[in-house]
Design a protein around this nucleic acid. Structure first.
Lengths: 227, 227, 227, 227
DNA sequence: TATGAATGAGATTTCATTCAT
DNA sequence: AATGAATGAAATCTCATTCAT
């Protein structure tokens, strides 16, 4: 299962092998349950070499988090073209996201589960990337709201009072949070349900989110009962 | 914080004290990082007594999961009255859910984070309860879809072609999954953001979901681009 | 060689056994070369028990230093009666010192060699006790100087200019340091030279210190009290 | 602080660089705490080269001990002229000794502390050199005793009973041991007390040893030669 | 009902040392 | 003359778990 034992490789290569092994073990067993012995064995090297190159279990885990976070963020960014309409951007981003998490389930587990469960320091690493994604989504929603506002102004010819007010910032933040959270949960669900493809997951969420958002844009909101 | 050291208590009471301590430690430190020493100390008893009553670390953790899962499920069920309209049921359920998770952050951490991070066996325990909730939400959505169908049929008197087809079951499952996932994420978010109340979290999600769902019910869907 | 393996002893007893073993191993092998495995084995217990009671290798070593330092200091104090003349006090103190170091060579090694070689923290522990001894000797020398001054004043009836000036404080400190240093070295020498008794070591140093080489050459010697 | 990284140097030079680095690290950290990595780095070479030249950690440490011992012995011998009177020889030797130990504190630490703390083999290396110094001092004392004997015989012309017997050999050995021990302790003391010069240390010990405390009390002191 | 005493097994980490070039 | 790559062995320390009372 582990890499074929090849001797004397340049450091950069060995380091990648170690990170590969570490992500796999960390992702499947969790930070604490993963043992450096297992990681070294899967990487096909001795334990001291892992320490020589990656320094400590903490550092190794951090390196895994960073690598996987970069990869995920890069995949999403590569999937989106900012010149397209907001809904298309959202769709492309979701598709890229679900595709990447489906292809790298261990990396996704490291990011979404393990890093958040084992200490503030690790969680902080993920928080940075996640904040980037939430910010991106927030921007997208605000953009879409502006578009909707413009369209509805066009439709009401004589400058009537019917122009809808923009969404308050706080609501947008909550909505983005909910959307990202839903995406994360769906990624887990899709990974746990082999019959669900990345495309289907993206479509489900897009339906759920966009149509709902469309209505919000049109100014119709659901109001909680008073009590 | 630990229970006052009182000697010779009936077994049932001691067990609850132990579970209380265990949930707190497991929730804050995670399954592996939590030590039986810490739990016993916080519970105000000796370690052998913990083993006498709860048998092993695994069993103790499982007992925690079950107790917290039952409590959460019960709280949600107690908040919902099945004779009310679907949207009101959803609102009440969400409010109960966010209220409970806010009041029992350690229990929520055990269920949502720890149980899923440390082995299939524990994850399975949660999956059962979660499946119950997803099923409940699925039912709710299907119910609402039926109502919407009925209403639109009423409005179109001469059997027009405009009657929308019901949502396919698979989609409903995905939507329920997305809704529950979003709720879970928002619970984490609310717990990590002290200024957000349970009511606000519920409102955010309700807006996001219901208005979107409402549109779906009316038959308008967002279609992914062909490529 | 190690204590006979007896089970289930009260904590205080076990702790002393552990300290005994630790002093022996630390004294013979040094702080770093001594392994907790060896100490545990010699103490006749498992390693975890050593950690449970003494906490860490550092703490164990510190406990050894403290115990041996206290014992040495107590032995010297018990040997000296402050109401006797200064030279007698010095003799009694030296005798007690050499007797104790000869009886507890490992303890002496811990104090004199190991504690000073392995980190400031440990060295500081010894420094405190040693400072106590140096202070005691300093006092003794000053006392003797005062006596000598008084005697020489008596001898010179008509207040002559021949009254000797007292020793400057700085010199007294240096002398005390030299005396204590010589004693420490002789203790090592005596321990390494089986034929040398504590009494002989004390006599050698007393001659050297009290009479001085110059005087010795001139045939005047200091003789230890008969008892 | 480490040697400038120059490539391709003759073996003899490289070896000295390594020994310099090793003495520094061994002296400051101790034999075991010193790592071959640190030594190689400080010497500015790779570890395999250290092994190629010095063979092993043991051999390297032994080489350090031998070099420093030779240097110390040579310094003392160079300071003494055997044709001068015994007290002058003693003074010159002490001055040379304290000067050397003050200038090479790491070397002194290796000899006096580290070598004696880490195994019989290393201690034996030092013992040889130390024995040489003790022998030299013994000779000096015996010489001085003979002179004193001769002088007192001169003074008592008609074979009086007042001629003192020579010091027994065993006593002379003990005295030499005490003197050397005191010198070693004072060297440590002087190194740890920046305000004490080599000259002061030598004067303190000379007073102590030559005149004796008893004489000092009586106001007679030994004064170092002016040059 | 309750606990002080005790341990087997395994975790991370370090280090002296060698190989192949 | 010199080094980057690699490891066997052993160190400290922790923890779930049991025994005997």
């Amino acid at each position: 299962m582990g890499a074929v034992k090849t001797k004397r490789m340049p450091r950069a290569v060995r380091e990648q092998q170690m990170l590969d092994a570490a992500v796999q073990i960390f992702g499947q067993r969790g930070y604490i349950a993963a043992s450096m012995d297992d990681i070294a064995e899967l990487a096909g090297v001795s334990k001291p070499l892992v320490y020589l190159y990656l320094n400590s279990k903490d550092d190794l885990f951090t390196a895994c988090i960073r690598r996987e976070a970069q990869a995920l963020f890069a995949a999403v960014r590569a999937g989106v073209r900012r010149e397209l309409p907001a809904d298309r951007q959202l769709w492309d981003g979701l598709l890229a996201f679900f595709t990447h998490t489906a292809r790298h389930p261990d990396g996704w587990s490291v990011l979404h589960l393990q890093a958040r469960t084992h200490g503030e320091v690790f969680a902080a690493e993920v928080t940075v990337v996640r904040a980037g994604i939430v910010a991106f989504v927030t921007q997208l929603i605000a953009e879409a709201a502006r578009d909707a506002l413009a369209r509805s102004a066009d439709r009401a010819p004589a400058g009537g009072a019917s122009v809808d007010p923009p969404l308050p910032e706080r609501d947008v933040a909550g909505l983005a949070e909910a959307l990202v959270g839903a995406a994360e949960s769906l990624a887990d669900w899709a990974n746990a349900t082999p019959s669900v493809t990345a495309r289907q997951a993206a479509a489900t969420l897009m339906n759920f989110a966009w149509t709902g958002l469309g209505e919000l844009m049109a100014g119709r909101r659901w109001s909680p009962p008073s009590a």
